[in-house]
């Protein structure tokens, strides 16, 4: 791996923090990047769609909690 960036190595790899449980899911046909919460539900971290219209849809806004049941 070669990283090409003006940041120093320490800025990128500065802790041995555990990776949080993040995963990519498809929700209502849109790709989302989610973080698993303690109760098993998912919190939206990032919407990965390229359709600008989807970003107006509050259903996909970051911070929204979706239950595992709704995942499809």
């Amino acid at each position: 791996m070669i990283i090409y960036t003006p940041l120093s190595k320490e800025d990128i790899f500065y802790t041995s923090q555990e990776y949080t449980e993040r995963q990519m899911i498809s929700y209502n046909g849109k790709p989302l990047y989610c973080e698993k919460r303690a109760d098993g539900s998912l919190e939206i971290v990032k919407l990965l769609s390229t359709d600008p219209k989807d970003f107006l849809n509050h259903e996909f806004s970051p911070g929204t909690i979706i239950s595992q049941m709704n995942e499809n």
Partner: peptide, 9 residues
């Protein structure tokens, strides 16, 4: 962006 992996970029 602040850059990143050469191959991916």
């Amino acid at each position: 962006t602040v850059g990143g992996d050469v191959e991916a970029g």
